[in-house]
Design a protein around this nucleic acid. Structure first.
Lengths: 195, 195
DNA sequence: ACCGGGTCTATACAAGCGTATACATCCGGC
DNA sequence: GCCGGATGTATACGCTTGTATAGACCCGGT
């Protein structure tokens, strides 16, 4: 394995352990068993290396999400949603650094246009995938816009769930609780329009 | 106005313009028309000053959210939700730096326990407020747990919406679209359980 | 055998960082 | 009028940072 790969791997380790902004060039060197100069040689700058590593991490994050989504095969939509949310919570437990890195990436995006485009594109791909989760079949008459909106809705829920898990795992909702909340909201909407 | 206040104000400006991690002690001094030494004198360290400023910013963020929530007075729940989401989108447009700082705070929380507690507490206060938005009256028989879950649900939606706005304002959903998505999901749940 | 491009590495450098020091200034109490 | 604590400030220190440099090494082609 050349130093290029070793650097990328080391950078990802640092990303998970220390976060983007806290990692120094020397941290990466220590984690990858290489040397300072190889960063410049292979990537031009520490920033470029770290961004490449973050993009890699984000792709891995996408794979993880796909994995979670594939588990939801229940015929009943409500059950499917609940198991998806539960799956997310479990994934967050077992792959915490990955999710944390994802959140840090959101903040970094504001000042790193390259990264922002990457993330925006990932989100654009995620929306239809999530929408399909709800509109499984028989939804041919659903407009493209509504489809996108459903994807956005579930995506937002997912991101927000992640943040709550990050800040306070005790207070953050479980998949079951989110499902209960949705059920209550559905009931409340029905009740409200009836009155 | 003493230098203590000037430093806090300057630090907040930097927080909005440059972000937490990119701001240097000298940036704050330049933005507050003070001097390097005053940071140490009044706050002990740059980190302490910046954290204090971030906490202040987050409180302001809470005030902004309250403002948005107070606007939703429609009797119909669906209308109320839609206007709330539209309000959030508008607020994000006019107070973007504030929201961006909020997101950066999430990422920072992972490595700054003090900040994390602060944010976790803000979230804990936000949940009942948001839940009350849905369960306006007649919800006396709703369990405390479900109430919290509804708050978590709406909070997650809000956070996720913010992130999408940050990454890609074009692709991010509008309040109207979110409402449409919820309507579709409600319909789909009904259809699914019927089949 | 040797050339040459690709790769690796020890080291030096300048810039920027946060903070401590030592001194100036202010201002109310006496 | 002056003392003393609180506040403000110029400056320098030690350190860490990212990157550039200059040369060593490896290895297939000729």
């Amino acid at each position: 394995m050349g130093h290029r790969e070793r650097l990328l791997a080391g950078a990802r380790v640092c990303l998970y352990e220390r976060g983007y902004t806290r990692t120094t060039a020397r941290d990466i060197v220590a984690a990858s068993d290489t040397n300072l100069a190889s960063i410049g040689y292979h990537f031009g700058s520490k920033e470029a290396l770290l961004t490449a590593a973050l993009v890699q991490a984000f792709e891995e994050w996408g794979v993880e999400i796909d994995r979670v989504l594939r588990d939801g095969t229940q015929p009943d939509l409500m059950d499917r949603l609940e198991s998806m949310w539960t799956g997310l919570v479990e994934s967050f437990g077992s792959h915490r650094p990955l999710w944390v890195a994802g959140i840090e990436a959101f903040a970094l995006a504001e000042h790193l246009p390259v990264l922002r485009e990457q993330l925006a594109e990932s989100y654009s791909r995620a929306r239809p995938a999530l929408a399909a989760f709800v509109i499984q079949n028989g939804g041919e008459n659903v407009s493209e816009e509504t489809r996108k909106a459903v994807g956005s809705f579930l995506l937002a829920l997912m991101t927000g769930l992640t943040v709550q898990r990050l800040l306070d795992p005790e207070a953050a909702p479980s998949g079951r609780e989110l499902a209960a909340a949705l059920r209550l909201i559905i009931g409340a909407v029905a009740g409200s329009t009836d009155d």
